[in-house]
Design a protein around this nucleic acid. Structure first.
Lengths: 210, 210
DNA sequence: TCTTACTTGAGACTCAGTCTCAGTTCGGCG
DNA sequence: CGCCGAACTGAGACTGAGTCTCAAGTAAGA
């Protein structure tokens, strides 16, 4: 029993793969806990490995850098999917705002808590923020790809890239706002900013006063 | 002769300070050269120190990290100054685009070359890009401060922060565009993007197709 | 059950970054 | 001019990230 079912359409993982997934998840779980409690810099790769009961070598086999451990994520694909599920005709910025809200709302409590720790670290620890910004669903390239597809233009079309830059900028703004007022919820703030932008860039035409 | 003139309004540096400035500049000069020729990762702090004929310790005394050496910059203050010099009444985005162009044009050839290497590294080497984005004149916080002052609003005003995010996003877009087509000049591209945005966010109202 | 391929732990190695200490050099003052 | 204190430098030890190699263990498949 518990044999790998090779014939069925969905290839069932098998013991080896299941073990790997479990180890990876364990490493992340302990890492995030330690980062939260002791701080990122004060947590060594050894600490994490020890907590997850594997060797340091193994830690780096699963995650190329200490930052990468924060990247592991079940949520980003959900944003993507939610966006693709938006009905045709929806204006882009609204569609993005909405898909963020629905994707985040669809998370169960455990995942949401995990996600909040991740976003907190992203705002707090510069190295992590940088990595996340580059490899996230909301990096310029990723948004450009997503949006280009949605409007039927190439991902390197100037307008598409500029639009993607604005969306990434909206995220930067949201992070800055939450940093200034930690009571704000990040996802909500991000979605709000996108909706503000749907009515035009604030201050775009504001003149300089002396 | 060559005595430090303490009485005159401008405090003349003195030997010590001059030496420091020279060492710092030398370190940067060699570092950028080595980064360009060998690559960032393949250049060790020892290499740079040796090239500039100082000890490794001294290198880290001048620059807290290897990335920081790329940050040293005479140009950013020029952008600031050029922006502040824009006539009252100029709309913000135009003012930013213009001040970038004039500041960059005011550089002599040597400085401009240096600046181009820096921007190239910023686009090419992720670590450097990240540091530059955070500590640059065009980071969200810096833009918010500059713009808040210009429109007479606090730097943590929501509109100001969102606007600053858009400007930072414009930079991200410009970097992405140059990455796709290295023949573009970065500064020009950045200014162009800002001017595009002055006419509204492209695709903002574009609907999703299918 | 036996072979093969993947996975792991141990440990050596390089390099970034921090810190301490001792020696040197500059600046200022008598 | 000569001396003292402060700033600067180089040497070297130390921690921790990240890479690599090798030997031992374990799942997969026949």
């Amino acid at each position: 029993m518990n044999r790998r079912v090779k014939m069925s359409g969905v290839t069932d993982p098998g013991l080896r793969a299941r073990k790997k997934a479990r180890t990876r998840a364990e490493l992340q779980r302990h890492a995030l806990r330690l980062f939260r409690d002791r701080g990122f810099a004060a947590t060594t790769a050894d600490d994490i490995a020890a907590a997850a009961d594997v060797s340091r070598s193994t830690f780096f086999r699963y995650f190329p850098t200490k930052e990468d451990v924060v990247l592991l994520d079940d949520v980003d694909p959900l944003y993507d999917a939610a966006f693709r599920a938006q009905p045709a005709g929806t204006p882009l910025l609204r569609a993005l705002a909405r898909s963020m809200r629905t994707a985040f709302a669809s998370l169960d409590d455990e995942k949401r808590a995990l996600e909040e720790v991740r976003m907190d670290l992203a705002r707090t620890v510069p190295e992590i923020g940088a990595v996340l910004r580059e490899r996230n669903t909301f990096g310029v390239d990723a948004v450009a790809a997503l949006v280009g597809e949605a409007v039927g233009r190439p991902a390197d079309d100037d307008d598409v890239v500029v639009f993607a830059g604005v969306v990434s900028g909206a995220r930067l703004a949201a992070q800055a706002l939450v940093r200034r007022d930690p009571d704000r919820a990040y996802i909500e703030t991000f979605a709000d900013v996108l909706e503000v932008l749907a009515d035009g860039v604030p201050l775009a035409d504001a003149p300089i006063v002396t």
